[in-house]
Amino acid sequence: MDVVFSLNDLTLGYESHPAVHHITGNFLLGSLTAIVGPNGAGKSTLLKGLMGLIKPLDGQINYHKVLPTEIAYLPQQADIDRSFPISVMETVLIGHWKKIGLFRAVTNEMKREAEIALEAVGLTGFENRVIESLSAGQFQRVLFARMLLQNAHIILLDEPFTAIDSKTTTDLLKVVFRWHTEKRTVIAVLHDMDQVKNNFPETLLISREPIAWGPTNEVLVDKNILKARQMVETWDEHAKICNRDVT
């Protein structure tokens, strides 16, 4: 199997304090991986690291045939201004940015693609609604439609289904499966263990350091989950320098 990202003793964090450290392993091309772990385990930090939004404190991420800017990314809290006077259609069309950039025109073909994407997330008829009038779930559908247009081979989702009802979650999971069948690589930070067990073949369990990584049914066993819960340490202003030897 081809590798998309290989992590080599990767440590990510803020101001020399690791949020997650010493991760080694590969994300495979076309894999569908859930990243799970307690709050503060470093899950979001890991995604930001993969996106190149923060630099590793130690170790490396090696990108194979992909640049960080070719990855679609749904942040946990997008810094989107929900009161901005912009329509659903316009928001989705931003997904074409790679093609249109600053200067090129939006073609009818692109609009058609946006309509198809909106249909795929169950928002047909919402094209001209202003985003201000949407519910949290509907807006998440809009962001998924925009990601569909980005047509990225690698998709990172940070808690995409938090505060989203089960109907919307089911619909959006269908989009995730579609990406999976299209051989795209999807990595999602999730909290719902049952959802992970039922839908995600691969799991990376972290708790400030990797606990287990592999097939979900082998990773999400009681022993590992208990270990993860115990591992979340508190932030220590005067923490010592980490000298762990990784073999």
């Binding site: 996106m51 800017t69 997008a78 201004d81 901005f84 931003i94 249109i100 200067f103």
Partner: peptide
């Protein structure tokens, strides 16, 4: 000329950052 960019930059600066805009 760059109106669309100005709007996107106002509306969703994070997106522009991840697509290297």
């Amino acid at each position: 000329i760059v109106g669309r960019g100005l709007v996107v930059e106002s509306f969703d600066p994070g997106f522009l950052k991840v697509v290297n805009g």
